[in-house]
Design a binder for these strands. Structure first.
Length: 141
DNA sequence: ATATTGACTGACC
DNA sequence: AGGTCAGCCAATA
């Protein structure tokens, strides 16, 4: 649990934002950071999830916060230094019909098409007509 | 109390 | 296209 009130507020904001990610979709740490008004702290978002309680006695816990729907900006499940936790996350995502493929290096990739928001743009920016990475560089479908 | 780590990311080589 | 670096800051050591 957070040690300061300031951190407490941040944790709460992050968990609440994550709860808004619809089932079957994912987003990035960076995007959550933007949503809570601290775009320069995607890392702290990771810290929040790292310390997400298991016990339902907490307001936010792994039973009501869809932690599995947060991946990194590269579109892959963060390996967090090692693979065990990431593999579990992939399993939980697959359980909610999210396609996760394994790359040649063992990376667990999530299809960008199910991003609730693109990693580099907020919904408002998307509405402005940005094309993100659909610029026409596809070589395969 | 000081130092290191790390569920991140974008900017630069 | 792929590695490195500098910010970030709570949690650990």
């Amino acid at each position: 649990m957070p040690r300061t009130d300031e951190a407490e507020a941040f944790f709460h904001a992050v968990y609440s934002a994550i709860q808004e990610i619809p089932p079957g979709k994912v987003t990035s740490y960076g995007h959550i950071a933007k949503l809570v008004g601290t775009p320069q702290r995607p890392r702290q978002v990771g810290v929040c999830l790292k310390h997400l309680p298991d016990s339902p006695t907490f307001t936010h816990h792994n039973g009501n916060v869809p932690w599995q729907r947060v991946i990194n900006s590269k579109g892959i499940i963060s390996p967090r230094g090692h693979q065990s936790g990431a593999a579990n996350q992939a399993q939980v995502l697959r359980a909610e019909e999210v396609t996760v493929s394994t790359g040649s290096l063992g990376e667990l990739m999530v299809d960008f098409s199910i991003y609730g928001w693109f990693p580099k743009q907020l919904p408002s920016e998307e509405a402005a007509g940005l094309t993100a990475f659909s610029d026409g560089e596809e070589e395969d479908a």
